[in-house]
Design a protein around this nucleic acid. Structure first.
Lengths: 333, 333
DNA sequence: TTGTACGCGTTATCAC
DNA sequence: GTGATAACGCGTACAA
């Protein structure tokens, strides 16, 4: 392995001077500088980032903790994080939590801190009490940390989607399509996002003077299976239902299949609106009207937020950023 | 920050002894041992993995380089890698290449080596000449590296799917369903996987004495759009086509939509078989017959392979592992 | 402008 | 079994 010492020797200078030439923090005369770089070139010297991190207390590494990366949402966010990370010169240390409800995160956190990450992006969905570990004292021992997808809380850096606004757009769209009995299949209600979308559904119907009783509500679990079962259940209870807002696109595709099997015409008998705008939704049959979240943007912003927090390390750290969703109208409504 | 020195002082021993107690590589007397661990507990000492990596020349970090992590395939592989990594105590350094055809990988490789990763999993699809950078000389300067999804080559560690076998199963299934004019929509032919699947289609038809001319072949680009366009084109050329094998499920969903719009009955008029078994494929309309790849398993095996190579660092490094795919029969055929 | 010496936190070697 | 000492590769005071 080639080190600064070798370069220094080859260039006939001291190691310190090589370092100065490399970092540019101290002036180096043009000719020694060129000698040094020539030696670097010839020897194929590459700085050891581990050693550099050790002395600089800066690893240019950001940890990203997420779950269910096979889902479109987390994957898209990850993609956005990566793009911004590359732009700002960070590498990404990835940790996948198999279960988002996991409350015991000590081991994960300890590992990340021990590896000297400069910051952490916590992109695990808020489920149940899985944020309990992040206390005020805890915060002191940790590098800057940004949370993706959770409810606003004082003193925390948070980036999320306006889920209520998205639900509102979905329901208002159904109303504009002359639907008057509008059901909802929600995600699991221990998920913050599911509760927000449910709330948006309820509030919008109430504002419009339409029914929003529990009779029109079914609780799913984000899966297509639960969307299928949910729709059957709702139609049994309420054959008069003519519109439905699904908590996500996965449940929507299940519901679409149930509707086909039951012989319902879409959108004639029943109009559907999903949430997420997964790439496939455009090719559902019929193509699905849905709510687009700016997930890539959320990823970028989250990384930028962490970067800012790292730079101005004295700051309070509180920042809440909300990305507005968008209605995508297709043939299912 | 608490270091070994603090612990040593608190326990009344030398730093070296603390290290010995921690790693267990040298014997430590029971009572000093317990004193040390008590001090560790009280001070909340956490070893600095950066420093440890520096001296040990072992970071317990494995780099994973991939692209298009929003696609099911790469994401699923990543998931498998992560599971095995956790089991073996590795952390993952993730690099996303925006363009899989990218041939200039110097910067990425340099960064990973500089960060002292113990091994690399190269999970970028083989496209065009994007493996050219990996030469015999190059190999000497790099830690162990395993390639996912590429053609077998001497001296390399490779984990992949038997794409030809998968294609064969798909076509044989269509034949068993009494189809005699079987088309294919291929992925971009600069992709190795696309070529393999195409080859499987051709060979199986030839073996069965059925037509496999270019008239029955269209080149897509993996996207649903291209599946839609491809099917229209094929049906225009060959109205007698009664079966079709799609290079992946994305193109299949596009083809399904085109078939609906053209008024074709599935599978009555036309039977479809896809490739990948993405989660949504079960909910396409009708549910899609497809080929399941063991992608999670591929990820696990790739990491295990790297781990083995790291442990026995003198080995040649050549190992080719092929995972067999599986036919999933649903209602589209 | 450049060289020297030390420190980052840890482990390994060699004495004792 | 334990304690000094050196070393991993680099950055940075301080001195020259």
């Amino acid at each position: 392995m080639i080190t600064v010492k070798h370069v220094a020797q080859a260039a006939g200078v001291s190691p310190g001077t090589v370092s100065n030439a490399l970092t540019g923090k101290r002036p180096v005369s043009p000719k020694t500088r060129s000698r040094i770089f020539q030696a670097i070139e010839e020897l194929g010297y590459k700085p050891n980032l581990l050693a550099r991190s050790l002395v600089n207390r800066r690893s240019h590494t950001i940890a990203i903790v997420t779950s269910e990366v096979e889902q479109f949402g987390p994957a898209r966010i990850l993609s956005g994080i990566d793009e911004q990370a590359e732009e700002l010169g960070y590498s990404l240390l990835l940790t996948l939590m198999r279960n988002p409800a996991e409350e015991d995160v000590e081991q994960t956190i300890t590992n990340l801190v021990a590896r000297g990450v400069d910051g952490i992006i916590w992109a695990v969905h808020q489920v149940g009490n899985n944020r309990r570990w992040f206390t005020a004292e805890r915060r002191k021992e940790l590098p800057p940390i940004a949370f993706v997808t959770m409810e606003p809380k004082p003193g925390m850096a948070i980036v999320n989607t306006d889920n209520r606004a998205g639900a509102k757009m979905a329901v208002q769209h159904l109303i504009s399509r002359e639907r008057r009995v509008i059901g909802h299949i929600a995600g699991p209600l221990d998920w913050w996002e599911a509760r927000e979308r449910l709330h948006g559904w309820r509030a919008t119907l109430a504002d419009a003077g339409l029914e929003n009783s529990d009779d029109l509500l079914v609780k799913g679990n984000w899966s297509a299976e639960s969307g299928e079962a949910g729709l059957r259940q709702l139609l049994e209870r309420r054959p008069d239902m003519d519109g439905i807002f699904l908590g996500n696109d996965q449940m929507a595709i299940g519901a679409l299949q149930a509707a086909h099997r039951l012989g319902y015409a879409i959108p004639g008998d029943l109009a559907l609106v999903g949430f997420d705008n997964i790439p496939e939704s455009r090719y559902f049959w019929p193509p699905l009207t849905t709510i687009h979240q700016g997930l890539f943007e959320i990823g970028r912003v989250a990384l930028q937020t962490i970067h800012d927090a790292i730079e101005e390390s004295g700051a309070s750290g509180e920042r809440h950023i909300t990305i507005q969703p968008e209605l995508i109208v297709r043939e299912s409504s």
